[in-house]
Structures are given as structure tokens and as C-alpha cells.
Design a protein around this nucleic acid. Structure first.
Length: 376
RNA sequence: GGGCGGGUAGCGAAGUGGUUAAACGCAGCAGACUGUAACUCUGCUCCUUAGGGUUCGGCGGUUCAAAUCCGUCCCCUCCCA
């Protein structure tokens, strides 16, 4: 009798934009099927900061992130396992993706030591010495129970030397293999491989090809949007576009400005995530169809118009800029909440418009129109 | 009426002869933010035609030099009558 292998996820490529070759597809997961390209809000510590689940439902497409490193440290993955995973813990009933903690190796770079076995960290709060291996990361992600999980990778600075980057990529590949072997639930959790290599096209190509040989259900592109220029980032995506398998989802990690999402989609990306909309919101910046605005600016003191005239979210249908500015100046919690809601809605709407444009074979026109109004 | 302590930039508060247009905090104004150590971080905040100019309760002194020392006046806190 033939064994039927049930994969955790499946990607269906439905249509390629005739103007741009951008992909429209459907990502099937154990907790829902999602049209792509998709933007995924980030909920690092099992909460999309300031928002409640019902609101996240309204401003996302139903697929969000959480972070292995943070949840491992607090409250600990065992606690979350007691709830049968993040979904039982936070009561989020949509789909989930967890990052591996690999990015923290980079963002906490002044307190880490990278070894073949794994990474030595200092706890960012207590200073305690900690260690995480690829196997640890996968074990924790198994406990967290997301639908899509990430390989434990190293995300070196974009400007690392070729020699360092080559060593790092080779190690990341070995870690990917080890993680894959340690993964206990491949039929309910899809493990993605992560392409690294900085600006070096041959390393990017090599990394992607080696990962593809290992046959992951999806591929992430990491090590971008870490301070390099947009041109450099787009060149890497251009390089990878033709290498990535058509029947698997492609996830550009950590990217979430409107312009980068559009440019990414045109270069074949299906999935995005970014802290930008929620962090900007907490700092008083709103994403709008004409560009970013800082709601705390004095010019909005008596402005009775909504954040974005072209937005139909409930915040824009209800509140004036003057009120939102007041909330921020008065340091009221509602300010960050309302703008977080709006910013996420903005990207949800943008993703939807992008998908429609792909289906209509006019994403090129859409891009041109978008940028004619959008500044910065 | 007597005594003590005070009056410093929008507010609070350092400084007690020169390197002080004056620490620091707050408020204010602006900027940054891309797999979240992030309700965080960074600038600016007397005037200026950018060369300078005018400041530390007021006025007048001492001194090469004063927010800082002296005199005097005004105001405030507290204590005693």
C-alpha cells in the first residue's frame, strides 16, 4: 500500500500577472486558506501589540506571527504547550507562523557567540547565559504549535565580508538540515528554509539551491531590510526570483513598507511580515495613501479630517486627526491602539489591491498609480 | 515690627568670581523606526540680518572679569511678636 504523505501546507499558484509576473495564489494551512500575496502582522509575544483578537481578525487576513526566542524566555514554551500551543494560549483561532529566534542572533548581536552547535546568548533582561541550537528552536516551535515554522538561521549584517558570509551561509544550511531532521510534526507544521547570503548573489543562489535540494514546503528570504539600500535588496530578490520553485510559497522576512511590498510582489514574493505598521503606530506615525504622517505634529491640532481620506477603516470613518493627536499628546493608550488598527488595515487593504491587480494583469499600472500619490 | 531662607530660561531645579547662553528634569517642536530588548531612540528649544546681541527679581557699585561679592529697593516661604 502506498503511503500518503500529508503536508502541513500547500501552495496553489493561481495566476501570474501578465504585466509583472507577480504571483497570485492560495496558501492552504491547517487553520485556513489564504490568498497571497499576504501581509502578516507581527505578534512577537503572542500578542499583536495593543490589539485584541477580534480586532486582529479585522485588520489581518488571518495569519500572524509570533517569536520563538521571546516566548521561550517568557513565559516559556512549556507553559504554552500546556495550552496546546499559542492558539490555545492567546485564543487566536487563525493561522500562525513562528520565527525561529534566528533574527535575535543578529539583533542582539553585541551579546552573542555563534558556534557550530548553536548560539550563546545573554538574556536581554537578566543577563543570564542562554544557549539555543537549531534542535532547540524546532523543539520550542513544536511546542508553540504554529502552522508554519522557521529554520534556525544566522542573519549576519548585510555588509559582512564575503568570507564571513560564506561560512555563515554554510552553517545556516547545516542548521537547516539539522532542524529538518529534528522536526517532529511535519504534517501539521510546515518548516521553511531561510535563504541568506547578504548581497552576494552567488551565495544567495547557492543557499537557495541547497535548501531546495532539502525540499522544504516553503522558502524564506532573510537577511534583508537590515539597513541595506532598497536597490541592493531588490537586486537580491531579482536574483532569487527565477531560482525559487514555483509551487512553493516565498516569504520575504521582515519587510513591510508599502513600496517594498509592491516591489517584492513584483519580484515573486508571496508572504510578508513586519513590525513596522504596529511600531510606527505606537510612535505616532500613520501609514496613509499619500505617505506617512506623524500624527503628533502641531499642524494636526485643529485638523478635523480622518487619518487617511481614502481609507474606509473604522478609525478613519470615526475619528479626526485632531482627536488622535490629542490622544498621543496626552499619552492615552487608545492612541497607539487606534493607529495600530489603522496601519494594519492599510496594509491589509494594500495587499488586497495588489492581489486584485495581479488578477487583472495590471500590477504595473497599479504600482505607478500608487507611487504617483505616495511619498516616502 | 523682628528673624531665617529664597527669587536662575515656558515650568521645576543646579551653579555661588573667569573654561557659563547657563548642568539636569519636565513641558514644547521636529526626526528616526522593515523576521519587536522598542508607548523607544535622536536632535532642537533667549534673540539674531549668524558677524554678533541681550540674560540669572529691580537699580547702583566693586573687579581686568559678576548669576556668583557689596549696597539698596521690590517680592515670596517659614518662624517670633
Amino acid at each position: 500500500m502506498k503511503m500518503v504523505i500529508i503536508m502541513a501546507i500547500r501552495y496553489e499558484l493561481i495566476h501570474e500577472c501578465k504585466q509583472t509576473k507577480a504571483r497570485y495564489g492560495i496558501l492552504h494551512t491547517p487553520h485556513g486558506s489564504f490568498e497571497t500575496p499576504i501581509f502578516m502582522p507581527v505578534g512577537t509575544k503572542a500578542t499583536v501589540k495593543t490589539l485584541e483578537n477580534s480586532e486582529i481578525k479585522e485588520v489581518s487576513d488571518g495569519l500572524i506571527l509570533a517569536n520563538t526566542y521571546h516566548l521561550w524566555l517568557e513565559p516559556g514554551d512549556e507553559i504554552i504547550k500546556m495550552h496546546n500551543g499559542i492558539r490555545g494560549f492567546s485564543k487566536w483561532d487563525g493561522a500562525l507562523l513562528t520565527d525561529s529566534g534566528g533574527f535575535q542572533v543578529f539583533s542582539l548581536s553585541d551579546i552573542r557567540k555563534i558556534k557550530e552547535e548553536g548560539v550563546e546568548f545573554r538574556h536581554h533582561k537578566s543577563g543570564a547565559k542562554l544557549f539555543m541550537s537549531p534542535e532547540d528552536s524546532i523543539r520550542i516551535q513544536n511546542n508553540l504549535g504554529a502552522d508554519i515554522i522557521m529554520s534556525f538561521d544566522e542573519c549576519p549584517p548585510f555588509n559582512s565580508t564575503y568570507e564571513y558570509m560564506k561560512d555563515s551561509v554554510e552553517r545556516t544550511l547545516r542548521w537547516a538540515k539539522r532542524g529538518k531532521e529534528a522536526h517532529k510534526f511535519p504534517n501539521t507544521q510546515a518548516l521553511f528554509g531561510i535563504v541568506q547570503g547578504g548581497p552576494y548573489k552567488d551565495l544567495r543562489k547557492m543557499c537557495a539551491e541547497e535548501l531546495i535540494k532539502m525540499d522544504f514546503p516553503g522558502y524564506s528570504i532573510g537577511g534583508l531590510s537590515v539597513g541595506e539600500s532598497k536597490t541592493e535588496m531588490y537586486e537580491v530578490l531579482d536574483e532569487l526570483k527565477s531560482i525559487m520553485p514555483k509551487n512553493k510559497p516565498r516569504y520575504l522576512m521582515g519587510v513591510g513598507t508599502p513600496d517594498d511590498i509592491i516591489e517584492g510582489v513584483i519580484r515573486g514574493i508571496d508572504m510578508f511580515d513586519c513590525v513596522n505598521p504596529t511600531r510606527l503606530a505606537r510612535h505616532g506615525s500613520a501609514m496613509t495613501s499619500v505617505g506617512r504622517i506623524s500624527i503628533k505634529n502641531k499642524i494636526f491640532e485643529k485638523d478635523l479630517t480622518p487619518l487617511d481620506e481614502n481609507c474606509d477603516c473604522k478609525i478613519c470613518k470615526t475619528y479626526t486627526k485632531s482627536y488622535l493627536r490629542h490622544l498621543f499628546k496626552a499619552e492615552e493608550y487608545l492612541g497607539p491602539r487606534l493607529v495600530s488598527y489603522h496601519n494594519l488595515y492599510f496594509l491589509k487593504k494594500l495587499s488586497k489591491n495588489i492581489r486584485n491587480a495581479i488578477k487583472n494583469d495590471n500590477l504595473g499600472d497599479f504600482k505607478e498609480d500608487f507611487f504617483s500619490k505616495y511619498y516616502k
